[in-house]
Design a protein around this nucleic acid. Structure first.
Lengths: 138, 138
DNA sequence: GTTGGTGCAAAAATTTTGCAGGGTG
DNA sequence: CACCCTGCAAAATTTTTGCACCAAC
C-alpha cells in the first residue's frame, strides 16, 4: 500500500507529504466514496481543514479522484480508475447511496448503461446514482 | 398558468403567497433545473434569501420539486411530475449538464435504464446524469 | 381572529484566500 | 537551497435559526 501511494503521487508529480499520503490511503482503504467530513473525521482532525480542501482540490485536478453527484447537497469524492487522465474520467460504474446509513458504495461490477440521447448532444461522461437501502440497513 | 399555480399550491395545502407563486412560476416556465442563485436572480432579489430557502424546502417536503444530483457542489431543483407524492419521486428521466454553459437539461424522453444490482440492495430511486456539450455549445 | 409565512437580524457552518514558516526534492 | 506544502488567521460565502410583524384563510 505504502509503495502504491508513493507511486500514485510521484506519477502525478506531487510531493509526497504526510497529509497527501494519509488522505490517499483513506481512499484506497475505503473502496468507496468519501465526503469532506469523512476525511476530517478519519484523520482524527490531524490535518488542518484547509489542507484537506487543498489536497482534495489537487487530487481532483490531477485526476486522482473525481466527484460523485448526489441528490442532497453533499459532495462526494472517489478514486479514479487507472485509466483516468487529467480531465477525462472513466468512472463508469454505478454508485449506491444508502438512505439510512448514508454510506456510498461503488458497485464496481455494475456498469452504467449507455443511453441514446436526442440529436445534438455530445455526451462525455455518464454517471448513475441509485439510492435506497444497503444490505446491512434493509 | 396562474390557475395551475394556485391549484398546485392548494393541492398541497399551502397558503398561496407571493413568493411561492413567483418561484413556482419560475419552475413552470424554465422547464429545467434551477439553482438557488438562479431563483434569486430571476426574482430580481424581490424576496428575502431566507424566504427562498424556506420556500424551496417546503416544496421539497411536499414533493413539488426534487433535487438533481450534480458533480460540482451545486444543488439543483426541478419540478416533479404529477405522479410524485410526498417522499416518493418518479423523476426517472436522464439529466444532461453542459460543461460549457452549465445549463441542466431534463431529457424527459430518455428514461433511466434499470440496472440489476447485487443481492441485498433495495433500490428506491435511480438517477442518471450525463455531462458533455449541449446542442448549442458543441 | 387564528394560523402560518415573511423579513430582518444574527448565528452557525462551509469554503476561499493571504502569508509566514517548515518540509520535500 | 529553491520550491512547494502546510498551518494559522481572517475573509467571504452559504445556510440555519429566532423573533416580531404581516398576510392568508
Amino acid at each position: 500500500m505504502e509503495a502504491q501511494i508513493d507511486e500514485i503521487l510521484k506519477k502525478n508529480q506531487l510531493s509526497v507529504t504526510g497529509s497527501r499520503k494519509r488522505i490517499l490511503e483513506l481512499f484506497l482503504m475505503s473502496n468507496g466514496a468519501l465526503a469532506h467530513g469523512d476525511i476530517e473525521r478519519k484523520t482524527g482532525e490531524k490535518f488542518d481543514r484547509v489542507t484537506v480542501y487543498r489536497t482534495l482540490q489537487t487530487f481532483l485536478e490531477k485526476g486522482i479522484i473525481h466527484t460523485i453527484p448526489t441528490s442532497d447537497n453533499s459532495v462526494l469524492y472517489a478514486l479514479c480508475k487507472d485509466d483516468c487522465t487529467e480531465g477525462h474520467h472513466h468512472d463508469n460504474h454505478v454508485h449506491f447511496i444508502c438512505d439510512k446509513c448514508g454510506k456510498t458504495i461503488c458497485l464496481a461490477d455494475v456498469h452504467v448503461p449507455q443511453v441514446k440521447l436526442p440529436g445534438g448532444f455530445l455526451p462525455q461522461e455518464y454517471q448513475m446514482v441509485v439510492t435506497g437501502l444497503c444490505a446491512e440497513c434493509r
